[in-house]
Amino acid sequence: MPALKAGSRLKSTVCTTEVIIVKAPAGEVEVTCGGAPMALGTETITERGEASADAKGGTALGKRYVNADETLEILCTKAGEGSLGADGALLALKEAKPLPASD
């Protein structure tokens, strides 16, 4: 997979989850959903695999997910049953720190 950058779109190969990268670390990172590497947003998924048992927590629409050092931030644009992970660890739900409405 080419290096991720902000704005890259990925889709799950095991469920309906789709995401967009908000912040990406320098260098390579493998993003997974349901334990399986995610495909690029432009790809067509012909056959869906199974989510692994330890990555079935699900994704929630509009929520943000981060890795431990918050160098990777992902926004869920379509919800699904798999859990997001990167480089072997599950991502955590990022707590919302909303800005005041400005327009």
């Binding site: 902000a6 704005g7 967009i20 908000v22 629409l61 509009g62 929520k63 919302a96 800005l99 409405a101």
Partner: peptide, 23 residues
Amino acid sequence: HKHLVSYIFGSVEFMGADEDEAT
């Protein structure tokens, strides 16, 4: 599209408004 979508993703929380809110 990338500018406007980035602006919204960067500054607004999805469903951040309560149900009674109106602008």
